[in-house]
Nucleic acid binder design. Sequence first.
DNA 1: GTAAAGCCTCCCCTAAGAGGAGGGTCAAGA
DNA 2: TCTTGACCCTCCTCTTAGGGGAGGCTTTAC
Lengths: 251, 251
Amino acid sequence: MLYTVKEVSELAHVTIKTLHHYHKIGLLLPREVSEAGYRMYGQWELERLQEILFYKELDFSLEQIGELLAENVDRTAILAEQHRLMQSRQKRLTQLIITLEASLAAAKNGGTMNQADMFKGFGSEAEWREALEAQNQHLKENYGYDLAEQPIDVPKMNEQAAEAVRFMKGAAACLREGRRHDGPEVAQLIAEHLAFLQAHGHAIQPDDYAAQSRFFLGDDFHRSMLEAQQVGLAYYLCLAAEAYAAGSGSN
Amino acid sequence: MLYTVKEVSELAHVTIKTLHHYHKIGLLLPREVSEAGYRMYGQWELERLQEILFYKELDFSLEQIGELLAENVDRTAILAEQHRLMQSRQKRLTQLIITLEASLAAAKNGGTMNQADMFKGFGSEAEWREALEAQNQHLKENYGYDLAEQPIDVPKMNEQAAEAVRFMKGAAACLREGRRHDGPEVAQLIAEHLAFLQAHGHAIQPDDYAAQSRFFLGDDFHRSMLEAQQVGLAYYLCLAAEAYAAGSGSN
DNA sequence: GTAAAGCCTCCCCTAAGAGGAGGGTCAAGA
DNA sequence: TCTTGACCCTCCTCTTAGGGGAGGCTTTAC
């Protein structure tokens, strides 16, 4: 039993153009070609087509699929390589989605934010205000809380932004390295962070900080920012802050 | 101060070809073009280029970027649309990785292309379910080998181990994908996990599970196991379990 | 015999540039 | 002033996996 291009295209849900293409690049040859030049496919070709489509679903290129379907080939290695590729692609995609969410949150409040803007220093108070505007709007709208009335000290803000980034990076490193959330390394980091904040006019106690970290978990804007730095960081920091507060309260 | 293509390409880490291209399609016009036809860019153009590159990172097409950078445009809607697109892409990618793992497992065990037969007629949900099944099978076997030396009920342990691994992978995916720890996806996972445990003779309540997750944080063995699966998972799960217990307790 | 459906090949098109040919321009050193 | 080398230009072709269509055969049904 032989099938015409139309029949194959309907059986396998591909277009005739695709069959032409696979013929041209030698990936799927018809069993025979009639005198009039009509392509005729047999059962074996249909099965091969299924395999081609299967690997195509896995995002292999047609060239790779040709190799995969060849004989005497290390399929395991090719599949493993593809697995690695897809995992890195997924990682990137996740970062991208997190960044999108942060941008979306900023755009909703009328600002434009790119990640670079987020932590770079600014030259003037106006610039800082502008950068913080999105965040303020977000807080005000969702939580009835307004930060905007306080005056902004430019160098101080830059310094604080830098310190915040340093702290976040340090905490992310601890998390990646498997340090306990209630361990000494993280406690040290938090202690330094709180000391810095206190030295810069924020009367923040361990309990306040723990509450703030817990609040960040539920707030898309802040959670996205932390998760963009390192997957899991928002959760780690919350638990670490609570452990720190508990520790400093009882001692 | 004007910059040549070479200078811009080095400042912004793009190729000169890219600048030519953006000029041709009208996305980034030089501030001026010299008599000899040299493209010269100013500060404003550099900033616009940064924005272009930022949106390019978010996988927007150049055409979309042009629209995004136009005035009087609903950036929020475009970003939201892109967010939806990326999430569906991520969903597909996750399925794809799972299928790849199953294929890889089959290939390692000497199964050649009959593995592909398993997923033949792809596109239907039933096939993807089959893919997941194969994946579970593989994990069960591997975990079974590890535990085989201990005097335990191997088939039963295998089944439970497989379920545990599946749960862990699901939770890790949620974490990576930025799902809230108190969101519906994770709650669903935990509910299923607890239902499975209860059906297998463990009288475990949401509160017990939350306590257990909290205990895992302090236990190096369990914490390492979770963190090996995905950085931050132990902390995420603990907070998710507590949120779940709080939710199921109050309702 | 004729019309409709089906098939063929050939050509151009896509997105975002990469690579290169062939030729003009600029600045520095001899 | 000449030359050399770096830099720049435009124009052309190429990449993936086919899509769209033109123009022209072939097969099938009535």
